[in-house]
Every structure is written in structure tokens, then in C-alpha cells.
Design a protein around this nucleic acid. Structure first.
Length: 421
DNA sequence: TCTGGGGTCCTAGGACCC
DNA sequence: TCTGGGGTCCTAGGACCC
């Protein structure tokens, strides 16, 4: 039976290590005066945008990530608002990874500030789970000056849910066999993958706690929610039922898509400005493709209007590409075909996917030009590294770029990036 | 509460092929 | 010319995560 064969002979020991208020904590390293104050990372209080991370002091006022900055400013006027610094976070994240690697060869960064470790069979080296976790915790503080919380369980799911319960700065071990008992009193929303919408559906049929879910008829869950319903029943018991959760820790695959998008501070219907943005985004995407040495077959445009209605339009190329110009040509064609002239645009995005590691088959005439462009772009990438993003502009991106920057982005390119925790 | 940016995964319909 | 069934690719949208 498939179900039986997926049950390991002995319970696994999985750690989920989650950095506490990561972005805020990193900012505090650079500016200790922020410590213990209400801090909001993500941008200015009057900007379009949302909170990337809030300090615990700010959270007391009801501020939380994903909340509009303007709302946060109303709830907590005395908060200190700081811009995010993605490079700083990536750098700290790398340090975190280095610490984790000491404790297990099977480490998987699930995002910039959290990781799974398979600690199965490491008892001789690091001691039993709780001891190993406290060692890791201390080592993390020593090496990175950052606090983390650690959840320990027999599945990724249990590790993840328990690290959330351990916050802040704690360690929590769910002893094998106690999974269902641990989960039962928690809100269904605590289960990874249950968001606003699923939560509402579950509430409608009287399921509020994970315990209610565990009691519910499994067949009915499957009928109502399909594949997801079945997985949900397993999760209520603490199993990594299906999907990514079931995969081996440390078996990270390559990216499946690369995208950049930009929300205007003021909506615009100026075609020059819009196409200049598309050029800029195409350049950013193309550059990432070249860095990863990937070629994309599918190019996608994302277009959000003033009223927030959003469409995506994709085009699959016969030959994969990593060239800014080809990406731009595709995305501009999609834009011209789908944008209603005169309508105000809030956001534009460019995404590429369907990666191949080889350029398209050699087409006799085009080949020379392709490699020519590739060399030119490598030079552009190099100059931008050296002298800054705005030091080199390709002719096709010139037209509206000054206008755009003068309008809304005087500080220069690219649009601020605001990852969050 | 006027709602970022970068991702993943799932669903569903239509084209197309055998 | 009253219409099968499966497989795969493509596209669009949406839920969800940090």
C-alpha cells in the first residue's frame, strides 16, 4: 500500500529553525538605537506598500507584516519606519545557513529566514533533540547575534507548527506520538497552507480547531476540497501529507520562475513611462537569467489597473532566451495587445519560466547576433556591478526612463525591494 | 485597512495528437 | 456528421507563503 510504504521505519527528527523578527533584528545590528523600540521595516509611513516586518514592540499596537504602511502609521504613530535592505538580509541568511550546516548535512533554507534540518541519527554527535536544539540556539546567537526559535517534530509539519508556538526565542519538542494532541487545540489557520479562504470554508462546516478537523469525516473532506481535503486530514494528524512537505529535507530544486514587478506610487497611463518600466523589468529579469545561466521559453506580463483588477498574459517562444531585448519585445507585444489605452495602471510585472539550460537550437543567421548580444550584455552586467544600476542604459530603455525617474523615483533604479518575513 | 514583491502549487479549459 | 478517451502542452487565475 502506498500509504504504508511512505511511513518510515523509525520516526524522523526534523528541526524547523525560524529567525525571530528577522528583518527588524538585522536592522538593529546596524543601528542598535532601534533596539526594543517599535520598528516597522518596509518603507515610509505615507508610501504605497505594506509592512515587511514589525518589531515586537510595534506588534503590541496591532502592527503586523502585510499590513499597509499607512495603516501601521495610524495604529502606531510613534513607530520608526525604515526601508528594507535585501543585501543585508541575504548576507545574514548566509551566516545562518553556515551555522545550520554544522549540525546536519541535510539543511534546506525554506526562505530567507527559516530552514528545515533533518536531525535523524545525529544523537551520537549532538545528543538528544532538546540538547542539540539548545546547542544550535546558543551557537546561532554567538555567530550571528540573532535570536531564533526551534520546533522539533517527527515531520516537517510538526516542526514548523511547533517553532511558531516556541516564539520568541524558544525551543519546543513534540515527542513522537503526541502530534495529534499537540495540534488539537490550535486554530486550523496554524496549519501551513490554510489561509484566509480555506479557513472560512472550514468555519462554514463547523471546523475551527485542528481537533475538529481530525474528527471530521475524511471522505467528506475529500469530496468538498478534493486533493487538498485529503491532505488536510493527514495534516490534522501531523503528517506531511502530500506535496512539497513530503519531500526529503535538503533536496532543493532550481527555481521555476523569475519575476520582477513594480507598483507606481501614482498610477499612470503614460505609455512611455509604462514601456520604460517594462524595459527596466525585462533587464532585471534577463540579468538574473544570465546569472543563473538559464534560458526561458515563457514570458509573462502582469498588469494591474487602478481598481486592482489584475490580468496576466503569457507567450511561449519557439526559442528560449536570456536576452533583455527579446524578453522586452515579447512583453511589450503582450502589453500592447492587452492594455486599454488611457486606463490607469497601478502595477506592471515581468515573469519568465519554462527554463532550459541550453539556448535555442542554432538558427544559422540569428546565431551570430545572439552571441553578440550575449557578450554585450555581459559587459553591461559588469558595468552595472561596478558603477551602479543606472550607469548603463540600453537605447530601447531610454525613451521614457528619465521621465519616469523624475516623476516618481528620483532616488533612481530599481524600485525598492521589500522582502518580508 | 486602499491593499509590496518574489515565489510555489493547484485547477480548469482548450488545443492538439493518437 | 451527431462524436470516445487519454496524454500533454499552453494559458489564466487564484490561494498561499515569507
Amino acid at each position: 500500500m502506498a500509504a504504508a510504504s511512505s511511513i518510515p521505519a523509525f520516526p524522523r527528527t526534523i528541526f524547523h529553525v525560524d529567525m525571530d523578527a528577522f528583518f527588524v533584528s538585522v536592522e538593529e545590528l546596524y543601528d542598535p538605537s532601534l533596539k526594543s523600540k517599535p520598528v516597522v521595516v518596509g518603507g515610509r509611513p505615507n508610501e504605497r506598500g505594506v509592512v515587511s516586518a514589525a518589531s515586537y514592540a510595534a506588534r503590541k499596537f496591532g502592527v503586523h507584516s502585510a499590513m499597509p504602511l499607512r495603516t501601521a502609521a495610524k495604529l502606531c504613530p510613534q513607530a520608526i519606519f525604515v526601508d528594507g535592505h535585501p543585501e543585508r538580509y541575504r548576507e545574514c541568511s548566509a551566516k545562518v545557513f553556515n551555522v545550520l550546516q554544522v549540525f546536519s548535512p541535510q539543511v534546506e533554507m525554506a526562505s530567507i529566514d527559516e530552514a528545515y534540518l533533518d536531525m535523524t541519527g545525529t544523537a551520537r554527535l549532538h545528543g538528544p533533540p532538546l540538547r542539540a536544539a539548545h546547542k544550535l540556539h546558543a551557537r546561532m546567537k554567538e555567530e550571528t547575534k540573532l535570536n531564533c526559535s526551534i520546533g522539533i517534530g517527527s515531520s516537517r509539519l510538526i516542526a514548523k507548527v511547533s517553532s511558531a508556538q516556541a516564539k520568541p526565542n524558544g525551543v519546543l519538542w513534540i515527542v513522537p506520538g503526541e502530534e495529534a494532541k499537540f495540534l488539537a487545540p490550535l486554530d486550523v489557520r496554524e496549519i501551513p497552507g490554510v489561509g484566509k479562504v480555506m479557513e472560512k470554508h472550514l468555519h462554514e462546516i463547523g471546523i475551527r480547531k485542528v481537533g475538529d478537523l481530525a474528527q471530521f469525516d475524511e471522505l467528506e473532506l475529500q469530496e468538498r476540497f478534493g486533493k487538498w481535503g485529503l491532505a488536510l486530514a493527514g495534516k490534522a494528524r501531523g503528517e506531511d501529507a502530500g506535496g512539497w512537505f513530503d519531500s526529503q529535507v535538503g533536496a532543493r530544486e532550481e527555481a521555476k520562475s523569475i519575476s520582477h514587478e513594480h507598483t507606481y506610487n501614482d498610477d499612470t497611463a503614460d505609455i512611455n513611462q509604462l514601456e520604460a518600466t517594462l524595459m527596466r523589468l525585462s533587464e532585471m529579469v534577463g540579468r538574473r537569467l544570465r546569472e543563473a545561466n538559464l534560458y526561458a521559453r515563457t514570458v509573462q506580463l502582469k498588469l494591474r489597473y487602478q481598481n486592482f483588477t489584475t490580468i496576466t498574459r503569457a507567450h511561449s517562444r519557439s526559442q528560449p532566451t536570456q536576452l533583455d531585448g527579446q524578453i522586452f519585445d515579447d512583453v511589450r507585444a503582450l502589453f500592447r495587445k492587452n492594455w486599454k489605452p488611457g486606463s490607469q495602471v497601478r502595477l506592471l510585472g515581468v515573469q519568465v519560466s519554462s527554463f532550459e539550460s541550453q539556448p535555442g537550437q542554432i538558427d544559422l543567421l540569428g546565431d551570430n547576433r545572439q552571441s553578440c548580444w550575449k557578450n554585450a550584455l555581459a559587459a553591461v552586467d559588469y558595468l552595472r556591478d561596478k558603477f551602479g544600476e543606472s550607469s548603463v542604459k540600453l537605447a530601447s530603455g531610454m525613451r521614457g526612463s528619465f521621465r519616469e525617474r523624475a516623476h516618481e523615483n528620483p532616488a533612481g533604479l530599481p524600485g525598492k525591494t521589500k522582502p518580508r518575513q
